[in-house]
Amino acid sequence: MKRNIIIAVFLLIRLEAFSLSADEIVSNTDKTRGVSSICELLIHMEDYSMGKLSETSDMKGYIKGSEKSMIIYTAPFNMKNRKILSINDDMWVFIPDTQKPVRVTASQRLLGQASNGDVLKIRFETDYSPVLSGEQTIPDIDGIKRNCYKLDLNAKRTGATYKKVILWVEKETYYPVKEDCFTLSGKKLKTVFYSGIKNFESRNTVTKMTIFDEVVTNNFTTIENFDEKSADIDDKYFNREYLKRM
């Protein structure tokens, strides 16, 4: 009996150590996405259908902390000045012809395979509880083998884009390499590859996501960030009623 208790306590301590370690890994990974906690950037999206470029879109992005972000479309021409705002679990779209912001969800499709949440919610730490499930060597988008931590992420908030995620993070750099996204029932929705390490303000950040349709592998969408820079962004930018004044 005493022996069993000692083993149980030992296992609990081990589990706790694993959990902390997973949190640290995810926290370090988040730091490789975005030049600082308050920054602005340019976003370019491309959608490929059957391997051919079909649609593109450009946006300005604003990020403040882990829970506030906003994008303003600059292209295509018919989407110009449309805005999407994300605060905590809430998300709204503002269309210039209308006067009021409208509720949307993070899962709603934006362009091709990309959802609103793929663009606006870039911090894993805020939305998911991570568990380190092991280590694995996997190929990245270019086929180069990477030694990775494998993490199981479960959504801890209603506003998370996906209910379950398996995330591979490169051990040496903490760069995210690959992500499999699932529904609550376990159905696989997408596979995301991360790439495009660029240096902004003396800091290396991951700037490109390639999102694959799980069924047809030559249907994919890319999201690439440019000109990331730290900025002093006023809180009013993240007020849904202020969107029409911007």
Binding site: D90, M91, V102, R103, V104, T105, A106, S107, Q108, K163
Partner: peptide, 12 residues
């Protein structure tokens, strides 16, 4: 009133 329900539904 307006809110979202689950991942795909908006209600007002």
């Amino acid at each position: 009133l307006s809110t979202t329900i689950g991942d795909f539904i908006e209600a007002h």
